[in-house]
Design a protein around this nucleic acid. Structure first.
Length: 586
RNA sequence: GACUCAGUAGCUCAGUUGGUAGAGCACAUCCCUUUUAAGGAUGGGGUCCUGGGUCCGAGCCCCAGCUGGGUCACCA
């Protein structure tokens, strides 16, 4: 914390020397506006009465409506044609052209508002409000004829300028690092980005509507958990000062939702942020969103039907059809999805029947198939490896994989026909896991044994084995109705539904490495050496960013550099004496 | 983590066997009353990612590092 604070202090001290020419000009404009008595950041509410899309879709030039519009938006382009100007304003719904003529804005002798304010002191990126009427230009573009305008917020940093013509984009703002770090910029200049996030919201809303229609209750459960249960994953750790205990950011919310089923809610769901302290790549972000739902008196067969219904409905709500293009593939989300057991799947893709194998035989099979394995891996993990390696990637169309080995599903009820298996399914789409669901284990004795088995795995070296949550077991001892639960990765679902290649494209603020600034000392530190402020600025321009750096230079060279820079840039500062320069460095 | 590609103006990018740092847009000044990635003229703007090295001379070649992208591996 103190470190962050120090950095902030340094940053705030940054002088205008860091600013580009265009930024300096904009700050100059800001001052000129104030000098003209114009507040660049007014406090008043600005009541708009329309939006860009509303104007574009409803304006009727035959019987002109929209003759008194009040509109606000960001100025995205400005085209000045002498006494008349065009521009484009962008609001939440899109862009609309504006038309301004000097003599309407400035009916009297004083043309300052047009010549100075509109033409010179406004910049691309400024947010303005306009009052006027809608008409169609000779070029056929629906336009607001502006009778009055007001500056609502001045922008002092230039936007990337992206232009478009006939679907071709010019100078696109595409650098992924900048786009993700400065998502606000991405959203301003790349309209398709906003679309993705609107769709994401629509997906969530559609699911929520379905659950609410069924009478299931949306709940919130702890993010800070004393025992990070419900999934096999490495958690983030934190510490609670007052209680003086470690707390973990949740890796799942399953155990809490099932406690609620015990408590008498017959259907609960939560859109939950989960956190896993693992690698980051195109499909993994340290924090991600999962929807988990639990319904009493149901089993995993019912849940498969429900999951199909939910996903088909989302696809239809978003696209009006079930066949979507994802990358170079066409995926059909029409019900019903294919169903196959895990053993049959492995048999299909490897020709090996592993259904009767013990741990040793499985290990040999792995080796035979060229799959890395070691002594820490139990039966469940070995099967999981085979499936992950040989089968998973083949399921492009939505497919339910069912009946997982009991070892890899410690929270799942044993299969009604085979105690070696569990009543579990995962939904595979585009070669990736999308959903995971069980007939939930509600036998408390069995649950305790499964947890103990996890403990043994953990002692064997499996660092992902689950923690034991004794209170959860206690809740089961009071009796949980037979229940089916399902979890679905919202980020991955959104990637599929929006044809996004990377999880970063469906997260507004994906996790990034901290932005690094070049280290530099503040002006104060230079001034402490007795260097006048004007020369400190010159030193910075010359590339001396740290006091220590300065100490290594010969005074004579520094003296020459300073005087030379002064002369070359015609700063007109009186040169320092050579002795002064020497004294700074001592 | 491995391999690979990249880092040049506010943005998007050129840059010849190594020889004075470029374009378009943006910006500034001026001209222009319905333009369509708005036109014309002129102009300003650079730590060529950083640090070493080779060389008379490095944006370019070599080494190391930083940052990012991609692929693969790990996490699973």
């Amino acid at each position: 914390m103190p470190l962050l604070f120090e950095n902030l202090k340094e940053t705030l001290k940054m002088s205008t020397i860091e600013l580009s020419e265009q930024e300096l000009i904009r700050r100059g404009s800001l001052q000129k506006l104030r000098d003209l008595g114009i507040n660049p950041y007014p406090a008043n509410e600005f009541k708009v009465n329309t939006t860009a899309s509303q104007i574009l879709t409803t304006f009727n030039p035959e019987e002109p409506n929209l003759q008194e519009v009040v509109f606000a938006g960001r100025l995205m382009s400005q085209r000045i044609m002498g006494k008349v100007s065009f521009g484009e304003l962008q609001d939440d719904t899109g862009r609309i052209q504006i038309y301004i003529s000097r003599d309407e804005i400035c009916p009297g002798e004083d043309k300052t508002l047009y010549n100075e304010v509109f033409k010179k002191l406004l910049d691309i990126g400024d947010i303005i409000g306009v009052m006027g009427y809608v008409f169609v230009t000779q070029m056929g573009e629906t336009t607001i004829h502006v009778k009055e305008f007001i500056l609502l917020s001045k922008s002092i940093k230039p936007l990337p300028v992206v232009k478009e013509k006939d679907g071709k984009t010019f100078d696109a703002f595409t650098d992924p690092e900048q786009r993700y770090r400065q998502r606000y910029l991405d959203l301003i200049v790349n309209p398709h980005v906003k679309e993705v996030f609107l769709k994401r919201t629509k997906i969530i809303n559609e699911m929520r509507t379905l659950f609410n229609e069924r009478g299931y209750i949306e709940v919130e459960t702890p993010i800070l958990q004393p025992i990070p249960g419900g999934a096999s994953a490495r958690p983030f750790m934190t510490h609670h000062n007052a209680l003086n205990i470690p707390l973990y950011l949740r890796v799942a919310n399953e155990l809490y939702l099932k406690r609620l089923i015990v408590g008498g809610f017959d259907g609960v769901y939560e859109f939950a942020k989960d956190f896993r302290n693992e690698g980051m790549d195109r499909t993994h972000n340290p924090e991600f969103t999962v929807m988990e739902i639990y319904v009493a008196y149901k089993d995993y067969n019912w849940m498969m039907d429900f999951t199909e219904e939910m996903i088909e409905r989302v696809a239809l709500a978003l696209h009006g059809k079930t066949i979507l293009t994802v990358g170079d593939k066409e995926i059909d989300f029409k019900r019903p999805f294919k169903r196959i057991t895990m053993f049959d799947s492995i048999l299909e893709f490897t020709g090996v029947d592993i259904s009767k194998m013990d741990e040793q035989q499985l290990r040999e099979t792995c080796t035979k198939l060229g799959i890395a394995n070691d002594a820490t891996m139990g039966k469940g993990k070995l099967v999981d490896e085979i499936f992950g390696e040989k089968c998973e990637g083949n399921y492009i169309q939505p497919t339910f994989i069912t009946d997982y080995p009991v070892e890899m599903s410690p929270l799942c009820k044993k299969h009604r026909n085979n105690p070696e298996l569990t009543e579990r399914f995962e939904l595979m789409v585009n070669g990736k896991e999308l959903c995971n669901a069980y007939s939930e284990l509600n036998d408390p004795i069995d649950q305790m044994e499964r947890f103990q088995e996890q403990l043994r795995l953990s002692e064997k070296g499996d660092n992902e084995a689950m923690f034991i949550d004794l209170d959860f077991v206690r809740s089961l001892e009071y009796g949980m109705p037979p229940t089916s639960g399902m979890g679905i990765g919202i980020d991955r679902l959104t990637m599929l539904m929006t044809n996004s290649i990377s999880i970063q494209d469906v997260l507004l603020f994906p996790q990034m490495k901290p932005e690094k600034r070049a280290e530099e000392d503040s002006a104060d530190k230079f001034e402490e050496l007795g260097i006048p402020a004007v020369w400190v600025e010159v030193l910075m321009k010359l590339g001396y960013k740290k006091v220590a750096q300065l100490k290594e230079v010969k005074p004579s060279k520094l003296f020459n550099d300073l005087c030379g820079y002064n002369k070359k840039n015609q700063l007109g500062i009186p040169n320092p004496a050579a002795e002064d320069v020497t004294s700074w460095l001592n």
